[in-house]
Design a binder for these strands. Structure first.
Length: 488
RNA sequence: GCGGAAAUAGCUCAUCCGGUAGAGCAUCAGUUUCCCAAACUGAAGGUGGCGGGUUCGAGUCCCGUUUUCCGCUCCA
């Protein structure tokens, strides 16, 4: 990473704090690691991004409906989803190289080596022993297995291992007021399962026919080993997910469709295409058939902002297995090859999952700009401006009377009253006009309007555009529609 | 979790060899001005992240701790 991009990231973090976008959580108590709060403008931005996504997914697609599932779910949910087994990996560190390994990866790699050497039997024995020990959570036994087989770290070449430790990435808590008798439940590590367990409820009550989708936004929690990089990786974060249910055999086409559709959504915000790229997964998760990330060029490099996964029928089948309740859909459409209806099946799923907090960071990173302005008298000036897309800007319109007397505030208040019911407005009469413009630039307000003495005569005002700094005279009565046009 | 760096006003930073903290910008009140960070007057804002130690005396030296950033690792 270059020093320049380092500085840029620092500048964005400082700006986010200084102008009320993002604060560290519990800052007066020295903060809480990797937890952040959104301030007055940050929460508007976040809400606007969420609303824009929600509208794009549900309102613009007749076959997508929403749910809002609880954060607490029945503990069996996480057994079915694979999170209890796959989300809590025993780890071991090599003391010499300081490298950390997942214990199962380390042993599997060793078993692979044995197989290559023609010792397949021994490899099998080791993997079987490992599985047994993992099931018993016998970490001392696992460490002994590693030592007995003289498994070395590939970096240091030594067997100098630490004890095996468990990193459970799910937060747990107790349900029930008496702790002794209470059951352990988890804060959801992803929102997807709240959709899967409601699959039939939604399908039946909203009378949905395949293909259809269920959208949800909400908080999820992961006790990350390392959570860093500002709001990019937080322990408490918000996801915007849509699970799209399709007939088996059509998932390839739908995967392709949503992969393209989701990138279009990003580009519809006017963010340059060259800052985005796809990253196709080579090594797939246990449930996936195909998967890719949409990556954005953050100040610290290209990083994932959204994932599109072809999840097969893994989730619904698992819930069917664990709940012993059929998760089937009856497809009355006629299969042209057989001439009969497709009938009952467990649908396949295409998932699109985007991190709302990452999207906020994406927008702020892309918007932040330190401009040098060449003034008419030959001198230069500078401004910090947030080029936030109009649709999602925290404040849409600033209403600024040129002076605080001669009846100008009264006219400005009239305009304020006319507009504030339709979008977020900001009123200010303090300080010189230039200073007020700069303050609005810093929070990304796309339009400023100034009421001056001419307004009293002919009802016109100057509208000043954030990005170009150009001004235009328009009639007061047109202002609301100009702004509405730009933000819809 | 390991290693490195850092933490002083809202922000960016000073404070020399250890002698009880300053600036610019921002904020607030007022005067004046009135279309791109204008000027003037005044005000407010700090137990120097927190805790301990050394010292007559610690923002400064030492230890611990918390938080942040960077590298490794992790992120199904």
């Amino acid at each position: 990473m270059s020093t320049q991009s380092d500085n840029r990231f620092q500048a964005i973090i400082s700006h986010a704090k200084e102008y009320g976008f993002v604060f560290q959580s519990s800052e007066i108590y020295d903060g809480l690691s990797a937890v952040y709060d959104y301030g007055p403008y940050g929460c508007e931005l976040k809400k606007n991004i969420r609303d824009y996504w929600w509208k794009s997914m549900t309102q613009m697609h007749e076959n997508i409906v929403g749910v809002d599932a609880a954060i607490f779910m029945h503990p069996t949910t996480w057994k079915a989803s694979g999170h209890v087994d796959n989300f809590s990996d025993p780890m071991i560190d090599n003391k010499d190289s300081k490298k950390r390994y997942r214990v199962d990866h380390l042993l599997e790699a060793y078993a692979d080596q044995l197989e290559e050497k023609g010792e397949a039997e021994k490899a099998k024995t080791i993997l079987a022993t490992m599985d047994a020990l993992l099931a018993k959570e016998d970490y001392a036994g696992l460490k002994q297995l590693i030592i007995d087989n003289n498994i070395k770290c590939s970096i240091s070449g030594t067997c100098n291992w630490t004890d095996i430790r468990q990193f459970n990435l799910m937060f747990d808590t107790k349900l029930g007021s008496v702790t002794d008798e209470a059951d352990t439940i988890y804060l959801r590590p992803e929102t997807a399962q709240g959709i899967f367990v409601n699959f039939l409820n939604v399908q039946k009550t909203a009378r949905m026919k395949i293909p259809f989708g269920i959208a949800q936004t909400g908080k999820a929690f992961r006790n990350e080993i390392v959570a860093r990089q500002f709001i990019f990786r937080m322990r408490e974060f918000e996801q915007m997910e849509m699970q799209f249910f399709v007939r088996p055999g059509t998932e390839g086409d739908w995967y392709k469709f949503w992969k393209e559709e989701r990138l279009k959504w990003h580009l519809s915000l006017g963010i340059p295409a060259e800052k985005y790229r796809y990253h196709d997964h080579v090594k797939l998760a246990h449930y996936a058939k195909e998967a890719c990330d949409i990556e954005f060029e953050f100040p610290m490099g290209f990083k994932e902002v959204e994932g599109i996964h072809s999840r097969s029928d893994f989730d619904l089948s698992q819930h069917q297995l664990y709940s012993k309740k059929k998760q089937q859909y009856f497809d009355a459409d006629v299969d042209p090859t057989t001439g009969k209806p497709y009938g009952n099946y467990v649908p396949y799923v295409i998932e699109t999952s985007i991190g709302l907090d990452r999207m906020c960071l994406l927008v702020m990173s892309n918007a932040y700009d330190e401009e040098t302005i060449n003034k008419e008298d030959g001198t230069t000036d500078s401004r910090v401006v947030m080029h936030i897309p109009e649709k999602i800007a925290p404040v849409k319109l600033a209403i600024l009377p040129l002076t605080k007397k001669d009846g100008l505030p009264e006219l400005a208040r009239e305009l304020m009253d006319a507009c504030k019911g339709s979008f977020r407005c900001f009123y200010e009469e303090k300080d010189a006009i230039g200073k007020r413009y700069r303050r609005q630039d810093a929070i990304g307000t796309p339009f400023c309007v100034t009421i001056d003495h001419q307004t009293k005569e002919d009802g016109t005002v100057t509208i000043r555009y954030r990005d170009s700094m150009q001004q235009e005279r328009v009639h007061m009565s047109k202002l609301k529609s100009i702004v509405l046009e730009a933000i819809s």
